[in-house]
Design a protein around this nucleic acid. Structure first.
Lengths: 207, 207
DNA sequence: ACGGGACATGACTGATATGTCATATTCATT
DNA sequence: AATGAATATGACATATCAGTCATGTCCCGT
């Protein structure tokens, strides 16, 4: 499809009016792609939804792929902010884990379109998708390593753990955030957290 | 795109020659879609890869979506067989868990194309994707419930656990099966299993 | 060895979407 | 109120692709 990366002809808006239009297009794209998927959402659908002309699109984006990349970054920023706020009061790594998991599920349910857009980016531009998760994984990893150092959690492979925990959250977000949109999220997060914290293996404490 | 479901004109092959051609097309589609993604893989690309004429495609499939559905089913069958064999010798649920996880990662690394096809089905036909995971989840759930009954594992929400474990495996399969294709899988599976079985929380046993 | 159902071909049509471009409008600045 | 840079328009040329169809080949059963 699009090959060259050199010389962005216009791209970044120079006035607040331009910035506003760019945002309108991004918002429309989020809705359109989230609803109908990347393939079905055409540039003309998006610009119609944004109430701008087709040509206007190419003032700010080089292609449909380009918008999607931008949307993945947007999702990363928003989710990060949301999780930071949600885990701010946590007094330990495990408390942060419990709160973060619930917050993630709530975020997924509140932002189904963005959620789908990120998942779809995997097939449109694997490198942004990769980077998206890598960023989260890096943070996650450091948090786990720190908690190990503070003797809050058992020692283990922090990398594998970080990715495993992300996968767990993503699937639950899918299932209970996008599919089963009515079941209460708290019990789900609690049940998952129980497994994360205590494991499946039976011990002597419980009957 | 395609709307009506009634009256399949030909579809199912009546001779072994036909069945062979159908398989050639399915194999080609698996490679093409796995490599280039659903959008980029055109019918003509697929038939070229399969070395049959374009029209032949429509003897056995109604659309590109149709092939994808078939490929998801194929993945389900193959993976199920693989996991059944891998966990056959396990003497407990947790042993099955450990073996199954490793087997899954190995399967993902050995079948990257099928793996991607399944993930992409999510955006082409959410219902098959949903069903695919639902089938696995149902089995998983019963296994967990049975293990609870046999007092092998702690009691808990089997549904949430099943989906959480699937998500964990899927993400690790992605990361260590498709992205990091050289790191040994055994340690990854072991590390993940350790978290699943024992949890993150520190206990009195370990120093 | 021939009749007929199954299978196979590939050129062609219609529909749709992308990205361009000549032209028009806005608006801050002078 | 004139200027020009930034922004906006929408018709259109171009490309691509899905699905059809008239025609032809294979091969089993008799």
């Amino acid at each position: 499809m699009s090959r060259r990366e050199l010389t962005p002809p216009t791209l970044a808006p120079k006035t607040s009016r331009g910035e506003l239009t760019r945002q309108k297009i991004l918002d429309a794209a989020e809705r359109e792609i989230g609803r109908k998927g990347f393939a079905e959402a055409s540039i003309s659908t998006i610009t119609a939804e944004a109430v701008v002309a087709q040509g206007t699109f190419y003032l700010y984006f080089r292609s449909k792929e380009d918008v999607l990349r931008e949307l993945v970054l947007r999702m990363g920023r928003r989710l990060r902010r949301h999780l930071t706020l949600a885990t701010a009061g946590a007094t330990s790594r495990l408390e942060a884990e419990r709160a973060g998991l619930l917050a993630f599920l709530e975020f997924a349910r509140a932002n189904p379109n963005l959620y789908r857009v990120v998942e779809e980016s995997q097939f449109v531009d694997p490198s942004v998708y990769h980077r998206y998760y890598d960023d989260f994984a890096r943070n996650y990893r450091s948090a786990l390593v720190a908690a190990e150092g503070a003797r809050e959690i058992r020692r283990g492979n922090a990398d594998v753990r970080a990715w495993a925990l992300m996968g767990l959250a993503v699937m639950l977000g899918h299932r209970y955030g996008l599919w089963e949109t009515t079941v209460p999220l708290k019990p789900v997060a609690d049940a998952a957290f129980d497994m994360i914290a205590n494991g499946l293996e039976r011990r002597d404490d419980d009957a």
